[in-house]
Design a protein around this nucleic acid. Sequence first.
DNA 1: CAGGATCCGTGCGGATACTG
DNA 2: CAGTATCCGCACGGATCCTG
Lengths: 137, 137
Amino acid sequence: MSVGHSGVTTEPVVSCGGEHEDCGIREVLDRIGDKWSVLVIVELAQGVRRFRQLQRAVPGISQRMLTLTVRRLERDGLVSRTVHATVPPQVEYELTPTGHSLTHLVRALADWSAEHREGIAASRRAWDAANPGSGVH
Amino acid sequence: MSVGHSGVTTEPVVSCGGEHEDCGIREVLDRIGDKWSVLVIVELAQGVRRFRQLQRAVPGISQRMLTLTVRRLERDGLVSRTVHATVPPQVEYELTPTGHSLTHLVRALADWSAEHREGIAASRRAWDAANPGSGVH
DNA sequence: CAGGATCCGTGCGGATACTG
DNA sequence: CAGTATCCGCACGGATCCTG
C-alpha cells in the first residue's frame, strides 16, 4: 500500500492491480450504475424488444430517459438498434454478445440482493432505532 | 410477458420472478451504485482501515462523502465501525460477513470491466464518429 | 484524528409539448 | 410509434469551517 507500516492487510480478495487503483469498476458503475440501465438490460435479456415495449416493461421510466439509456447502451456496444423502414416506424433493441455477457453479472447481483435484502432491511431498522434522527439514508 | 403474441422471447437468463418485476436489483444498485461505496468496499476488502486511511486510499473522496458512504454501509450491515476511546480518537472500519460476500460480486464486476473496457472504448469511438454532435454520454 | 454543520453549484432525471 | 426539444426541481456531492 501507499503507507505500508502497520497495515493489517489480509488476503487481497479484490486487489485490482495491486496499488490503490480503482480498477475500472468506476467505468462499469458509471454505465450500469445509473437509474435505468440495469432494468433495461434485464428486460432485453428476455429477448428482442421495441421502444414502447421497453417503456411499458420498465415501470417508471420516461421516454426521455429510455431514449438516453438505450442510446448510451448502444454507444457502448451493449445493445444493438435496428430500424425497420415501415409505417408506423418500428425499432428493435437487442443485447449484443457483450451486453448479454453482462446479464450474468446482473443475475449475480439479483441473487445477492434476494439473499441479503431481508438482512439488510433488518440491519437498517436496528440502526435507525439506535440512531434516531440522523438523516442518513 | 405482458403482451405475449409474437415475442421472440429467448431463455430467461435474468427472469427475476417471471413478471416485469425489478427483482431487487434496484436496491443493490441504490446501495453500491453510488459514486463511492464500491471503492470503499474494495479498499476494505484489503483489511481493517481507519478513517483517514480510507480517505487517502480512495483518491478523490471528500470527508463528507466518506462519512456518508461509510455510515450508509454501516446502516446496511455491510461494514462494522469500532471506536477506540484513545486520544487522538481512532475509528476502525471493517467489512462484515455480509459485506465481504459482496466483494465477490465486486470482483466479478472488476473482471468484466477489465475484459470489456477496451471493446467498449472502441465501440464508443466508432459511435461518436458515426454520430457527431449528438450530446450523448 | 474523526467527524458534524453549512453553503452552494451542477447534472440527473421528470414533465410536457411537438415532429416524422 | 419512436423519438426530439425545452424547461425545471432537487438531490448528490464538493468545499470550507468548526469541534471533541
